[in-house]
Design a protein around this nucleic acid. Structure first.
Lengths: 225, 225
DNA sequence: ACCTGAACACCGTTCAAGT
DNA sequence: ACCTGAACACCGTTCAAGT
């Protein structure tokens, strides 16, 4: 007896939350936040848009789940340093780099208030701040400052990346344009902005990020000693 | 001769960018980011959705313009202090309060990279950091740290506010829920989060914000002295 | 029990037609 | 020159019907 030949390709596996999240990440990485669509997603998974609602609550839920998968990976990969400061810096840089690689993670994080991806960051930050010797009743302030900063820069980098994709401008031409716009501002009301306009093109986001993180660390150390 | 009686109400004024922005702010304040719709907006202005495109480029442009109107007002209202530190703190608190009052401003700001509302913040911050005595080549790092922090907290507060509106939960019941969720996490992997869960309900966002801002200020002072 | 996909109630944006 | 508003090309989400 001859084996029956399939006319439609076999589905890789049955639909599951994990497969949906994995496919979402691919779509988000390829086309940014606009690339995640229930129609595109269901096509990729060879099903109908309605089927997805059996495994996820809605689009927000899906985006946060995708974000959490990426954050969990970053947390497990970034190094534990010799000192709490080093561990915190490694985590911060790890997040910076993943947001550069997956800009949509930056905007997803800002919308995940209190949810799992944020809790992962909160926990690691909290443990290291404790190890730093900050008294218990000052730990929350320190942790929320560090986290707010990471999320703030992350959000900026997200725009950076999505803007770069939207118009398919490369980063340096965008900065070039911003630099000329800023240098044409009124010198009376915008002296500082005009002054930094020139240096905009050559600056290093990653170094600036780390410098800012170190300001906060130093401020924390100073206040608890 | 009898005056002709109008059958439709007279338009207040002809369509203009300012009137559109003003109406947008009212819609955003009333119903959040979801409330700003070209249909709702054109109805409010007694015109068709297409007419708006004569005065604004697209929805993003409109949102940033509305955001800038609010930020400009805040900048002009917040006090100039006796010291650069005091002025910076007043500006930061002014932004915090306006974002609490207009949560959509928080998310609009994050998407306004390099645009007018950001430039207003950048300029004032830069001038005060200069007055603080930070050497020229370290000013950019200090300014971008302070700004990233403000934008980071602003983004969080925006979610806070929009989340409160979406489900019409009040803030304390939301924190209550988060507090119980966090306190049920695995004690082995989430000791810090569990520990702070209890204090979540009673904490003061505004005080935390200021404490974090002061960490950065202290870090800046320390590194440049 | 789970999937399917047409249908619903929306969006932002465009553009021929009007004034 | 400017406004009008139907039309276009999409969304997220639902739900009767299928298997």
């Amino acid at each position: 007896m001859i084996k029956k030949i399939r006319t439609t390709p076999r589905r890789e596996a049955s639909l599951s939350r994990d497969r949906i999240v994995e496919a979402s990440i691919e779509l988000l990485d390829r086309n940014g936040e606009a690339g995640l669509t229930f129609r595109a997603l269901s096509e990729r998974l060879a099903t109908g848009p309605g089927a997805l609602y059996g495994h996820i609550a809605n689009k927000d839920d899906l985006l946060i789940a995708a974000c959490d998968a990426i954050v969990a990976r970053t947390m497990s990969e970034c190094a534990i340093g010799a000192t709490p400061q080093a561990t915190l810096r490694a985590m911060a840089l790890g997040m910076f780099d993943t947001i550069v690689a997956h800009p949509w993670v930056g905007s997803a994080l800002t919308r995940a208030l209190g949810q799992l991806p944020i809790v992962r960051l909160l926990e690691r930050t909290g443990q290291q701040v404790g190890a730093l010797g900050v008294p218990e009743d000052e730990q929350w302030a320190a942790v929320s400052a560090l986290l707010s900063y990471i999320l703030g820069v992350g959000g900026q980098n997200a725009v950076n990346g999505q803007l770069a994709r939207a118009r398919d401008i490369d980063r340096s031409t965008f900065l070039e344009g911003l630099s000329t716009t800023w240098s044409q501002l009124d010198p009376q009301t915008y002296p500082f902005t005009r002054r930094v306009a020139g240096r905009l093109r050559s600056h290093d986001d990653r170094a600036d990020f780390l410098a800012g993180f170190d300001f906060i660390l130093r401020g924390i150390e100073r206040s608890s000693s």
